[in-house]
């Protein structure tokens, strides 16, 4: 069983005020509220960077029944750190159809956060993944997306690894203050434990904006929401005007090519076949001898 590592002071020699912006997640199968997968990874990244100093924020409707449960999921991650402080989350009240960006921006500015971590995309609502960008634009911060790990953070810059397809990584240096959008391939979040979740504090912060300036999200008023349809599978596109070819392509079973079985091979021959196949599929470099 992996022991949770204590806060890594080598990663951050100088304390930088760090926060994670979290949202309410939806389980992909049941749709039940819980931690969002990417946000939970952002919290994990924050906890391993600054320990219990990490503060959390969420803009949402405090009246919503399932919200507290999902937010407690994040607070339940405050364990295995080198101090016994419980988690604390600032809940910024936001009504139906409200715009979270001005609230979050005001909160980030007021709390002096210089490094904000969040997931790339929310799991409920529009899920456009724009909040981070709008915040960065509004605050004039830098933003790095698809971050798999934070390697180092001095007081000025943070060095991150950005996730590329197929497990590849790119190293980026980002100036502070900045927003880090954490990718789903970042280190898996620690278990959310019931005890810390129960003890964690959720503070409602409702004096961020003047009361007349209630942020409203006007754009989305005339959108029509509907249950997601299954996306149609694209048939093999046949660039043929020949009815017979089109029919054949449409009727053909997709990719049921059937494997090639080579028997009676000596190991040498088999090795040759294997290497040839891998080269043809560009998995091995053409000739690396």
């Amino acid at each position: 069983m992996p022991q949770p590592e204590p806060r890594d002071t080598a990663k951050m020699p100088q304390r930088v005020k760090t926060a994670a912006l979290v949202s309410s997640g939806r389980h992909p199968v049941s749709g039940r509220a819980g931690r969002a997968r990417e946000d939970a990874r952002a919290v994990e990244m924050g906890l391993s960077l600054v320990g219990a100093d990490l503060s959390l924020a969420h803009a949402g409707d405090p009246e919503q029944a399932s919200l507290r449960e999902s937010l407690q999921g994040y607070l339940g991650m405050y364990h295995g750190l080198d101090d016994d402080r419980d988690g604390q989350l600032s809940l910024l009240p936001l009504g139906e159809g409200g715009d979270a960006v001005p609230l979050l921006a005001a909160w980030l500015e007021r709390s002096g956060v210089r490094l904000a971590l969040t997931g790339q995309r929310a799991e409920c609502g529009e899920g456009s993944g724009m909040v981070g960008y709008l915040l960065a634009e509004r605050l004039g911060w830098a933003i790095a997306t698809g971050v798999a790990a934070i390697e180092h953070c001095d007081g000025e810059r943070v060095t991150v690894l950005q996730a590329l397809p197929q497990g590849q990584r790119r190293r980026l240096e980002v100036r502070l203050p900045c927003l880090i959008a954490v990718d789903a391939v970042a280190e898996a979040p620690r278990q959310s434990a019931f005890g810390p979740a129960r003890r964690g504090r959720i503070d409602i912060v409702d004096d961020l904006l003047p009361p007349d300036e209630s942020p409203l999200d006007a754009d989305s008023a005339d959108w029509h929401w509907q249950p997601a349809r299954a996306r149609p599978k694209r048939l093999k596109v046949v660039k043929s005007t020949n009815a017979r070819d089109r029919f054949k392509a449409a009727a053909a079973k997709s990719s049921a090519s059937g494997g090639q079985v080579l028997t009676d091979l000596s190991p040498e021959e088999a090795a040759e076949k294997l290497i040839d196949y891998l080269r043809a599929e560009k998995i091995l470099a053409q000739d690396d001898q």
Binding site: C124, W225, A228
Partner: peptide
Amino acid sequence: RAGDRQDILR
């Protein structure tokens, strides 16, 4: 495609 198994027609 929005979050939580919803589509937005806009």
